[in-house]
Design a protein around this nucleic acid. Structure first.
Ligand code: SF4
Ligand code: SF4
Lengths: 150, 150
DNA sequence: AGGTTTTAAGACTCTTTAATCTTAATATAA
DNA sequence: TTATATTAAGATTAAAGAGTCTTAAAACCT
């Protein structure tokens, strides 16, 4: 799979937060319920996003987690990098050790092109953009329901 | 990772075979040595390609494995499908259960575009094409060496 | 102060993928 | 026919990824 499951969860949670443009912290429990993701697992993933400087967290009652910057300024790429690292964008098709332009494998040329498409997509798409689209069209964010159920 | 390790090994072995346009069977041991892949593991992967109708095998002395059709007629897609299935091309970014155009997630539109690029690349690239390029430019196929060492 | 709500951190378990090891089956050749 | 070379198949082990559980720390509230 292109993105690890952790990363997908991280993206969905980030979209959730971007869909709640509130100054309040959102409890992880609420997100894990709505998004149907294991609470403890999600907690760990959000910790990664917190230490990556994408989220900030607060303990205790009325605590939770929220985006530091506005969702308009956060690209999918940032979230992916924080969770999966740049493996996908540097390693690739044949994944030979230390490969690259210097001594490429035969797929390199074609693959690099494809890979750049993925990078461009991740870099040019923001959380807010997707959350807005999700709300306007009531698109899916959970297994069953859409943004309206959030 | 986009492709599983098994799949990458399968691709490299297929390229190896395409680079040896010989009517003889090539022993798996020879390939596993040259490509630095565990013999038994590679054997299993090639069995998948054999039962998928991409390779044919022969036992005993002078036995081994070879492409059924010419490498010109075999696309990367065939190899990928035989080993990893179509998961990568149907599932994707958020990977919600049963997702798709009917009730898409907010990334769907952008992702589908990217995904088609990957599909096109895999479908339009043949083993022979890459093997030829690999030979002409002595590109990498193993960790250390290039096609010349095959 | 003491109890409650929440995130943080780490140990632990389960599942999947990767890799190894053993035995069987098939073909060749001397 | 016996020894050897090779793929086929299945059991086993190892490593990584995913998920759960427990305890700690921080913040709030009465
Ligand atoms: S040479 Fe390029 S395409 Fe090939 S494995 Fe390395 S980065 Fe990927
Ligand atoms: S809706 Fe489309 S982009 Fe979203 S997870 Fe499903 S297939 Fe992927």
């Amino acid at each position: 799979m292109l993105l690890s499951k952790s990363c997908v969860y991280g993206l969905r949670a980030s979209l959730y937060l971007a869909g709640h443009q509130s100054e309040n912290y959102i409890p992880i429990r609420q997100m894990s319920d709505k998004l149907e993701i294991s609470f403890h697992f999600l907690t760990k993933i959000l910790q990664q996003l917190t230490s990556a400087g994408i989220l900030e967290s607060y303990k205790g009652p009325n605590g939770g987690v929220r985006l530091i910057r506005s969702g308009e300024d956060v690209t999918l790429m940032e979230v992916v990098l924080a969770i999966d690292g740049d493996y996908m964008l540097t390693q690739c098709a044949l994944g030979l050790p230390g490969c690259g332009v210097m001594k490429p494998c035969p797929i390199h040329e074609k693959w690099a092109e494809t890979r750049d498409k993925i990078r461009d997509m991740l870099e040019s798409t923001t959380l807010t953009e997707l959350a807005k689209k999700g709300k306007d069209l009531d698109l899916r964010i959970t297994a069953e329901g859409g943004f309206e159920d959030l």
